[in-house]
Write a protein that binds this DNA or RNA. Sequence first.
DNA 1: GTCGTGTCGAACCGAGCGGTTCGATTGGCT
DNA 2: AGCCAATCGAACCGCTCGGTTCGACACGAC
Lengths: 223, 223
Amino acid sequence: MAHMTMQDHTEKAEACALKRRHAAGEDPEKRHQILVGAWRVFVEQGFDAASMNSICKAAGVSKGTLYVYFENKEDLFVALVEEKRQDFFDGIFERLVGAGSIEERLLAYAMGLSEQLNSEEVIRAQRIVISVVERMPDLGRRFYDAGAAHFLGRLHGFLREETEAGTLVVPDFELAAAQFVELATTGTWRARMFGRREDEPTAEEIEYVAREAVAMFLAKYRA
Amino acid sequence: MAHMTMQDHTEKAEACALKRRHAAGEDPEKRHQILVGAWRVFVEQGFDAASMNSICKAAGVSKGTLYVYFENKEDLFVALVEEKRQDFFDGIFERLVGAGSIEERLLAYAMGLSEQLNSEEVIRAQRIVISVVERMPDLGRRFYDAGAAHFLGRLHGFLREETEAGTLVVPDFELAAAQFVELATTGTWRARMFGRREDEPTAEEIEYVAREAVAMFLAKYRA
DNA sequence: GTCGTGTCGAACCGAGCGGTTCGATTGGCT
DNA sequence: AGCCAATCGAACCGCTCGGTTCGACACGAC
């Protein structure tokens, strides 16, 4: 409501960029610092077992400050997942549109996808999200949409293009995209989610599974 | 160490069958009753949020009695999962060895598998197991072995037989079996685990996905 | 009938929880 | 220099947790 000149805005922005006194709960550095600590604790203890005290200690922040930045534990966790989603799932999509034959592009996509979904960090995140999905259904849905659904969407578009170009014959884009994702993580993701496999799959295994996934996929859908 | 005549054993067994005073913590009916109540509570609250008090109430049993039957919460949960594993995964395997063409048998197997893994009860059980897998790694492994690994084993055997019979050409049985399981639950299981889909898939959807799974599988591995 | 024992139920324990409060401290701002 | 607000840190709140204890009770064994 208060009137500000353009001048004022510019000055403020400049000051912020360096070292400014922030309003309570509005220092983005501190906020990030809290999230980093919280991530460590959540990831190694799970949602319920992680106490706000541990998170304070891990983040190097007083409890009072913590509650200035986040309303409560759930709020903190939602903000955390919201931040992580993007880190996790960026930088894979462009593999689909890169140069190369269909095989090469699908292979690159499958490998990126498997590598990402099977990484220790993402596995643990997925476990925690699943464990609270009953209490926080929105969180689960948003997480899924940002991850799996996003992969599926890109693939869906790719398949339609290739079908229109006559390279592939895909009667059901949704299904085919989902099949591809499943094939790419065959034998690894599920076992890792249940703790049946403790270590990340090796690069060789990822490539092997991805290659076979592409082979099977094209055996069915190649024109 | 104590000596007993055959007579004694028989008498005891007969008495037990009807209405006998059981030693503390050894009445199988009561034990089952506790597990039923515990299942209800665990399933709708998760491991951490489920309190022993709620479980007592749900089971209609006093807290003292509960702790006579089970050492602690973890012990109770392990016993519960142990009991449920068998209920969940029985009665599907024989579909593979039934009569019919390969297509028919694979289809039946895929449908049974998808139906089972996607049922509300099993989804919830899987969520809970995954949520505690960090703290109780054995439990996760045993659950996986009783479920997914069991499916895979049967399929593995089937594929070898068919390959030896010349019907299929499968270079890597492990991989192919895993691929089949993934294909059978395409688009349903993962989304349900993350709460992205609230309702069990319909029989029609299960059959559709299963059919496409078999089609793709045979497109790759049929001799 | 009376004894023995498995169950009940409620009180109880110490610990830890999420969340709040408040005085002391610090370091940018004017 | 002196103000002021963001942060600190420790104590504190009410509550619930997993787990224990114990006297009352009910019922099968003899």
